[in-house]
Structures are given as structure tokens and as C-alpha cells.
Amino acid sequence: MIAVVSIGPLERWLIDGIVQFVSDYYSRFGISVEEVGEVPAEPFSVAFNPRRNQYLGRVFLPTLSSLATKLEAIAVVGITDLDLYEEGLNFIFGLANPSLRSAIVSVRRLRNEFYSLEPDENLLLRRAVKEVMHELGHVFGLPHCPNPKCVMHFSNSLVDTDVKGPLYCPICERKLIENLRKLGVLK
């Protein structure tokens, strides 16, 4: 099972839409996807950098990893509206660690409102799905892909996210299947 958890409150339709898409994809491999509830954002206050007004993404991963272990999940992805960063980067849409079997995705900069544009729920859902699929790809050992249409293409900006599709290209999908076999998830 892949567990999806919201960190802090998020719109129900957004979580449901992400879970539905990821479930539709990974069910082809016999992997279920379940939304496992909400974790309060307060315990992650240690990740907050007041100078930047952002949260250090890597701080979330060990806690999510322990949740994966507790739930006996093959992976866990946290979704939050907190603004995330990593050292050397202005911001990140998400981050994953294959050895921890965990990923974190922020929808803060995926929202049109962040850029003073009109809200667009459909666009937000498409962007969030792409970032969750991307980070799950990393959890399962996929590197970045040079194909700008592949979900594993690196998103340096929102334009990159909007250009790429929500699915793995044939090369990345073959690697994904191979990696899932190595992990013992597929026979």
C-alpha cells in the first residue's frame, strides 16, 4: 500500500483527486493507495526557518517514514500547503528519499493564488498529481528524466510542471517496474 497523508488541513477534493489518480495508476501493479488522514503541522515547526518564512523539506521525511513502517506501507507521501525549501534552492515542490520510503509535496506554489492569479481547482489538481507521481517515482528509485513530457522530468519552475504529463514515459515506466520487482512488490 502507498499511504497518502495530509500535513495540516487541505481541501478534501484535492486529496481525493490525488488519491484517485495515483490509485488508478498503481493499481495496475496490484498496489493500493489509501488516504490515511491528517497529521497536524505543528510538530513540524522545528522545520520552520523564520528568516525564509519556509519549512525545510527534509525534516518531514523521517516522521513520514516511521508512519510508513507503522502502517506497513511500501511508501508514504505527505501533502501540505506549507511552503518548502532545501538548502541552495529558493523553494521545492517536493522531495523524496528512497531509503526512507517517504516523500513530501507542497501545493503552496502550485496554487495560482500564490502568483496573484485567479484560483483554478482543475489546474491545481493536475499540478499536484504530477508532483506526487514525480516524488513517488523517486521513492521507487527513478532519477530525473530528460524527456520534458515525462512526469520524472525535473520541474525548476511551474512552467516545467505544466508542460510535463502526469505519467512516466515508457523508459521510466520500465525502470519503475524493474525497481518494484527488486523491492519485492512485484513478482
Rank of each mutant, 00 (worst) to 15 (best):
F48V: 06
L71R: 11
N53I: 06
F140Y: 13
L117T: 04
V107D: 00
L136S: 01
I79R: 02
V59Y: 08
Y115S: 08
Y85N: 11
Y115G: 15
R51W: 10
E121D: 15
E86T: 09
R109N: 14
A68K: 00
N122S: 15
S116Y: 15
E121Y: 13
M133N: 04
V59E: 02
A68I: 04
F114R: 08
L95M: 11
V59F: 04
E72D: 15
R51E: 05
K70R: 14
V139P: 12
L61N: 06
L100R: 04
R58I: 06
K70M: 13
A75V: 08
I92H: 11
F48Q: 04
V105R: 02
E118Q: 15
D83N: 10
D81S: 14
R126E: 15
S45C: 07
S102F: 06
L110Y: 09
Y55V: 01
L84R: 01
V132E: 06
L95D: 05
F44Y: 07
E42M: 13
A68R: 00
V46F: 10
P50C: 04
G141R: 04
N112V: 08
F48I: 04
A73V: 01
F60S: 02
N122C: 10
L61P: 02
E86V: 12
P119E: 11
A73D: 01
F60R: 00
N97I: 03
F114L: 11
G94P: 01
V46N: 09
V107C: 03
H138R: 12
L117G: 04
R51N: 09
G94H: 05
V129E: 00
A75F: 03
L82T: 00
F140I: 09
E135L: 10
D81H: 11
G94A: 02
Q54I: 06
E113D: 05
A75Q: 05
R111E: 14
A96Y: 14
E118D: 14
F60T: 02
P98Y: 09
V46G: 06
F140D: 05
L100I: 03
V76D: 00
I92N: 13
R109E: 06
